[in-house]
């Protein structure tokens, strides 16, 4: 198959998923409201801890609020990937998707990126307005923006691999939700959701830097507020490495899962 046909196929999946996601505007509204409360609370908290003009390990209150704006915009842009894949596996719908000229994993990836594009953009737009009202606009450079954008995409790829790997566990275990729960706690802590991991104790900082979770939230948000090229290169390399490793894991898991259908029935 030619690359252009492949691109047309999966980009159409992404566009359709984005259109479909836009139909859930009430849910997105509720998330935005929750987002505003989180930003308001943390802005007040940091104001108390470090004052309006002080810093915390080199981060100003404004930078911390904008850091949180991006990490929360990413985290709250939950897609239906987990439910979709889990449902496909449990109900056998996966069998019907396999009967189409598609690669199931690429299909899910395109679906995920389509939904992510809509939800992350809208979250960031809404959160950005709240953050602007609370602490004003940060001194963002164009290179910082470009770095953040690239890292958001790479982080989304890492996140897709992790979520899909969890969802595909449905082939082997009755319930994959507990694994998702563990994953979300890792994002909270080792992903640096509320605070940049530079502020962590040494051991946890080093541990977090080696794991994939920081590529999803910390990497893009740190680049957004700092625009540091050295830091960007580190984050990008780490994200690419994890993408490769997790893609391998995902493909292996999927092949094992499909084999499972053949052994245990559709």
């Amino acid at each position: 198959m030619s690359w252009s046909k492949k691109w047309r196929k999966y980009s159409a999946v992404a566009i359709t998923a984005a259109q479909s996601r836009a139909a859930y505007w009430q849910e997105m509204g509720a998330r935005t409201f929750f987002f505003a409360i989180v930003l308001f609370t943390f802005s007040g908290l940091w104001g108390r801890i470090i004052g309006t003009d002080g810093t915390l390990a080199g981060y100003s209150r404004q930078q911390l609020v904008w850091y949180l704006t991006l990490t929360e915009a990413i985290t709250l842009s939950a897609t239906s990937l987990l439910q979709e894949v889990e449902q496909d596996v449990k109900t056998g719908q996966i069998a019907y998707l396999l009967a189409k000229p598609l690669n199931y994993l690429l299909y899910q990836a395109a679906y995920y990126f389509g939904e992510m594009a809509v939800t992350t953009s809208l979250n960031f737009l809404a959160g950005g307005l709240v953050a602007w009202a609370l602490v004003g606009l940060p001194a963002i450079t164009l290179s910082g923006l470009a770095q953040a954008l690239i890292l958001v995409v790479l982080g989304a790829a890492v996140r897709f691999c992790l979520l899909a790997a969890i969802a595909l566990l449905s082939f082997f275990v009755e319930e994959s939700r507990p694994f998702y729960w563990i994953y979300s706690k890792f994002i909270f802590t080792l992903g640096g959701l509320f605070l940049p991991i530079d502020l962590y104790p040494d051991f946890f900082r080093r541990l977090a830097a080696l794991l994939p979770f920081q590529s999803i939230t910390y990497g893009p948000a740190r680049a957004f507020i700092s625009g540091d090229w050295g830091q960007f290169a580190n984050s990008a390399n780490m994200a690419l490495l994890w993408c490769l490793a997790l893609t391998g894991l995902l493909s292996w898991e999927f092949a094992k899962g499909v084999k499972q259908i053949n052994v245990n029935g559709g």
């Binding site: 198959m1 046909k5 047309r8 980009s11 159409a12 479909s20 139909a23 859930y24």
Partner: peptide, 19 residues
């Protein structure tokens, strides 16, 4: 067919899937 979208959108997608 995609539940939240009109059939026209699903047709567009299927047209691309079947190249």
């Amino acid at each position: 067919l995609w539940y939240h979208l009109p059939p026209a959108d699903s047709f567009f997608l299927l047209g691309r899937i079947y190249e």
